[in-house]
Each structure stands twice: as C-alpha cells, then as structure tokens.
Simulated scan of single mutants.
Amino acid sequence: MAEDTRVIVGVSGSLGNAAALRRAVAEAERRDAVLVPVIAWTPPGGEAAYRTRPCPPLSKLWERAAADRLDAAFARAFGGYPAHLRVEPVVIRGEAGPALVEIADRPDDLLVVGTGRRGGLRRFLHASVGRHCVARAACTVTAVPPSEAPALKAVAGQRSRVTSLAA
C-alpha cells in the first residue's frame, strides 16, 4: 500500500450518499490506498449559537452522534467497515465543505463527494458541499450522483473505528 495515497470521502449519513461511499471504496481498492471517510458536524444552531451558551457535555454527545452516523453509513452500505482496506474514519467539527478541503490537502489525494438530489430552490437556499470542494480542493475531486437503487445492508452491532479531530 502506498502510504501517501488516500481516498477521502465525505459521509453525510443519507441514503443517497451510499453511491459516493461505494465509489470511494472501489477507488481505494483500485489505487491500493487508505480510505478516509469523513463526517463533519456543527452544534445545532451553529457555532455562533453554541458560543453564547457552551456546553461541553452536549458537544461530546453531538460528536458521538456524528460518529454513530458514520458507522451506520458503512453498516448500511457494506455491513461494516471493509476489512480488506486500511480505513481511517474521521469525525471533525466544522462545515462539511471546508472540513473536507482541509483534510484532502495533498495533491495525490482523491476526494469523493456525493452530489445529492437538489431542486432549484434547495440549491439556492443551501450551499453545495460538492461545489465548494471542486472550487477549492488541492486534489482531484470526484462528484458522484446518487444511484436510483442503492444496494444497502443493515447490520447491527458494528464496532466504531472513528477518529475525532477538533476543527
């Protein structure tokens, strides 16, 4: 395995994100690379609201919930983390687009993001993580549209392999 080669994938926990996860796993296999699934989270109401009334115990709960969503995404898509790959999951506090660009900071990284299903109004009201990454990433970005019928497997009791990073 090439130590410098990484495939980073943004994980949202949505069913539509399964196509991006499958593409990232396939690319990590093909490149003999480390798979780095990343889930970003922010406190409910955003950072500004949290700063007015910080609560570290709640912050830990929200971080744990994000880690659980990351684990659940892999459980649904693959039955757990692929055993044949080196997987280094990351939970990071911050907005998804900037967090992914920060982590995918090497020219030989591959960043995989889902495009999601958005109509004109939703696109106008919510910033696109994929568009942010394509415009600002230092590496190649692959934007994967959601598949029509993702093959999902539900497996309970998967052990977490998540690493947390403070933003």
Rank of each mutant, 00 (worst) to 15 (best):
Gly119Asp: 08
Arg22Ile: 02
Ala33His: 07
Pro44Trp: 03
Ala99Thr: 13
Gly46Gln: 05
Thr5Phe: 14
Ala143His: 12
Arg64Cys: 13
Arg106Phe: 00
Arg123Trp: 03
Ser14Arg: 06
Val162Lys: 01
Thr42Met: 00
Glu47Val: 14
His84Ser: 15
Ala49Gln: 06
Arg161Tyr: 14
Gly79Phe: 01
Tyr81Lys: 00
Leu35Phe: 12
Gly45Met: 09
Leu111Phe: 11
Pro89Thr: 06
Val36Lys: 02
Val9Ser: 11
Leu15Phe: 14
Gly94Glu: 09
Pro43Thr: 11
Asp109Ser: 12
Thr52Ser: 13
Gly119Leu: 11
Leu61Ile: 14
Asp71His: 08
Leu121Asn: 05
Ala65Tyr: 08
Thr42Ala: 02
Arg136Phe: 01
Ala33Pro: 03
Ala65Leu: 11
Arg69Trp: 07
Val113Thr: 11
Ala96Trp: 11
Val162Asn: 07
Ser147Gln: 05
Arg30Glu: 09
Leu110Gly: 07
Arg118Lys: 13
Ala138Pro: 12
Glu29Ile: 15
Ser147Met: 02
Ala104Glu: 06
Trp62Leu: 14
Val112Ala: 02
Ala154Glu: 10
Val129Ser: 01
Pro54Ala: 14
Val162Gln: 05
Val162Leu: 05
Arg76Ile: 14
Thr140Asn: 05
Ala24Lys: 07
Gly114Phe: 01
Leu35Asp: 08
Ile8Ala: 07
Pro145Met: 04
Ala72Pro: 01
Arg117Glu: 03
Tyr81Phe: 07
Glu88Thr: 09
Glu102Asp: 10
Pro43Asp: 06
Leu35His: 10
Arg30Asn: 12
Ala167Arg: 01
Ser128Gly: 04
Gly45Asp: 08
Ala24Gly: 11
Ala19Tyr: 02
Val144Arg: 05
Arg30Phe: 04
Tyr81Ala: 00
Gly45Thr: 11
His132Gly: 06
Glu63Ala: 14
Pro107Phe: 09
Arg131His: 12
Glu88Pro: 04
Ala127Arg: 06
Arg6Phe: 14
Asp108Tyr: 02
Leu61Tyr: 04
Glu102Cys: 00
Ser164Ile: 14
Val134Gln: 06
Gly79Pro: 00
Gly116Ser: 07
Gly10Arg: 04
Arg69Pro: 05
Pro37Arg: 10
Phe74His: 01
Leu35Asn: 09
Leu61Glu: 12
Arg51His: 12
Ala26Leu: 05
Ala127Thr: 09
Arg161Thr: 15
Val162Pro: 02
Pro43Gly: 12
Trp41Tyr: 15
Ala18Arg: 02
Glu3Gly: 15
Pro56Met: 03
Cys133Ala: 13
Arg76Leu: 15
Leu110Glu: 06
Arg6Asp: 09
Gly80Glu: 00
Val91Tyr: 02
Ala65Met: 10
Pro98Gly: 13
Glu88Lys: 07
Gly10Met: 11
Phe78Met: 08
Ala40Thr: 10
Ala33Val: 11
His126Asn: 07
Ala48His: 07
Phe74Asp: 00
Arg131Lys: 09
Leu110Phe: 12
Arg31Cys: 05
Arg23Glu: 08
Trp41Ile: 15
Gly94His: 11
Arg6Trp: 13
His84Leu: 15
Val38Tyr: 06
Val90Pro: 01
Ala166Asn: 10
Ala137Thr: 01
Val134Tyr: 06
Arg22Thr: 04
Thr42Val: 04
Leu125Arg: 08
Val144Tyr: 03
Met1Trp: 03
Phe74Arg: 02
Pro89Tyr: 03
Ala135His: 08
Ile103Asn: 09
Asp71Asn: 08
Asn17Asp: 13
Pro107Asn: 06
Leu165Met: 04
Glu3Ile: 15
Ile39Gly: 02
Ala19Asn: 03
